[in-house]
Design a binder for these strands. Sequence first.
DNA 1: CGTTGTGTTGACAAGAGTCAATGGCAGTGG
DNA 2: CCACTGCCATTGACTCTTGTCAACACAACG
Lengths: 244, 244
Amino acid sequence: MDKAMDFLMRRLSAIGDLTEGDRQSLLTLPFKRRRMSRGEEIVTEGDEATACCLVITGYVHRSKVLATGKRQIFSLHMPGDIPDLHGLHLPRMDHNLVATAPAEVALFSHVAVQRLLDQSSRLTALFWRDTLIDAAAFRAWMLMLGQAEAPVRMAHLFCELYVRSQLVGLNQENSFALPISQIDLADMLGTSTVHANRTLQDLRLQGLVDFKRGRVTVLRWRELAELGMFDSSYLHIVEAAPAQ
Amino acid sequence: MDKAMDFLMRRLSAIGDLTEGDRQSLLTLPFKRRRMSRGEEIVTEGDEATACCLVITGYVHRSKVLATGKRQIFSLHMPGDIPDLHGLHLPRMDHNLVATAPAEVALFSHVAVQRLLDQSSRLTALFWRDTLIDAAAFRAWMLMLGQAEAPVRMAHLFCELYVRSQLVGLNQENSFALPISQIDLADMLGTSTVHANRTLQDLRLQGLVDFKRGRVTVLRWRELAELGMFDSSYLHIVEAAPAQ
DNA sequence: CGTTGTGTTGACAAGAGTCAATGGCAGTGG
DNA sequence: CCACTGCCATTGACTCTTGTCAACACAACG
C-alpha cells in the first residue's frame, strides 16, 4: 500500500503543491486492494460508482463502445492515476473502466474521500485540478483524432505515455512498459488494427520509436515529438519538463 | 444581467440541485459584461486566465490549432454555459475561447468565484460537476471522432445541440439558431469543409435535418438520433429527458 | 456594384477500412 | 516433450471514405 500511495503522492505533487499535512491526511484514507486480470471491468457504463480507483500496478483504460461494436479508448492510466475521480460528482458511469493489462488497484469509498475533501479546500482544489487535467488531455487527444493522420497520432500517443510514465518514475533508459495489444493501440488511435500495424511499421522503419512485446522504446525523442506535434503543456505539470 | 443569471440558473438546476440559498449567493457575484464580435478571442492559448466567462447571448467555442494550421473545435457553448470554468484551477489556458457568432458574455473574476465556493461546498460540488460534464461531453465526442463516419458525427452533433438548446429554452418548435459557417461545422466534425458540405446535403436529402442560414431544423428526431447513435445520458441531465 | 466570405460542384488523389490468409508465439493438456 | 489451441501480428488485394484542388455561384455588405 505504501507503493500505491507513493505513486499517488508523486503524481499529485507533479500537478500541484502537496503539503506534508495533505500527505498525512491522504494516508489516513482507508482502501481496499483489488487484483484485476487483463480485460476485467472495474466499472461498467451505466453503473453507479461508489468508490474511486487508484492504479497501483499495471494499466487501466477508459473506453466506450458504439452500437456498431466499435470501441474508442479515451485514456490509458498508469500507477498513481485515479482514472475515475469524476465519479465523485458524476456517480453514473458514462463509460467503462477496464484493466488493459493485469493490474492492481486500490479502491477508496467516495464517502471517505468526500469527508477528507470537506476538511481541506487545498485537497479539494488539487483533486478538482486532477480531473481538469484529465479533461485537458481529452482536448489534446480530440485535436489529434480530428485533425491529424495516423502516424502523427501514434507519435503523439507514444510521446504522452513516455512523459507521463517518466513522471512517476516508470521509465527505464529510453523505454517504458506498455503491455497492450495492437488492437488496443488501434482503438486508442481510432484506426483499424491493420492500419495501426502498418503505421507502427512506418515509425519503426523511420527509426523513431519501436513497440514490441509490451515495451515502447523511444529511439529519437526529438523527431518523434516533432512528428507527433507534441507539446506537453496540456499535461499541466508544474515540475521541470522532462527531456532526453 | 437577469437574463444572464436566468440562463445560468436554468442550466445549473438542470445538472444538479440548486437551493434558493445558492441562487441568492450566485446573484451576489459581481461581473463585467462584454460584447464580442464574431471570431473575436475571449482567451487565447497560453494566456493566464483570471476570470471565467458566462455566455449570455450568442455562441462561443473552444478550439485548438495544429502546427499545420488545422483547427479542431472541441465544444460549442450557448447561453448559460461557463465554458472556461476549468480556468479556476487550470489558469494557464491550453486552448482558445472564441466567439463563434456575435456574443455577449459576463466575466466573473476567479477570486470572487473562489470566495463564493469556499463558503459553500454545495456550490463547489455543483461547479465541479459542471466541469466534469464538460469532460463527459468530450468523451462522447471522442467516440464519434474516432469511431464514426461523417454523417453519424453530424447527426450526433445536431442532436446534442438540439437537446442542450432545448434545455435552456432556446428552441423554437423543432428548430434552433446555429449561427455558424460550414467551415466551423467542418472543424467540429473533423472533416474538410467540402466533405462537411456533402454530408450535410446527404442528411438534407434523407429529410432528417436541415441547416440553412444559421438555423438547424430537425425534421425527424427519431431517425436523426438513431443515425447519430445519440444517447443523451453523457449530458448528465437530472430533469426529464427531452423528447419530441 | 465590386469585394469578400461562404456554399456548392466536379475530378482526382490519398488515407484508411475490410477481407482473407498466413505466420508466430505462448499456454494448455496429454 | 510435443501436438493443439487461441490470440495476436503481419501481409496483400481491393474498396470506400475522405481530402485536395479548382472553379463557380451566391449573398451580404460597404
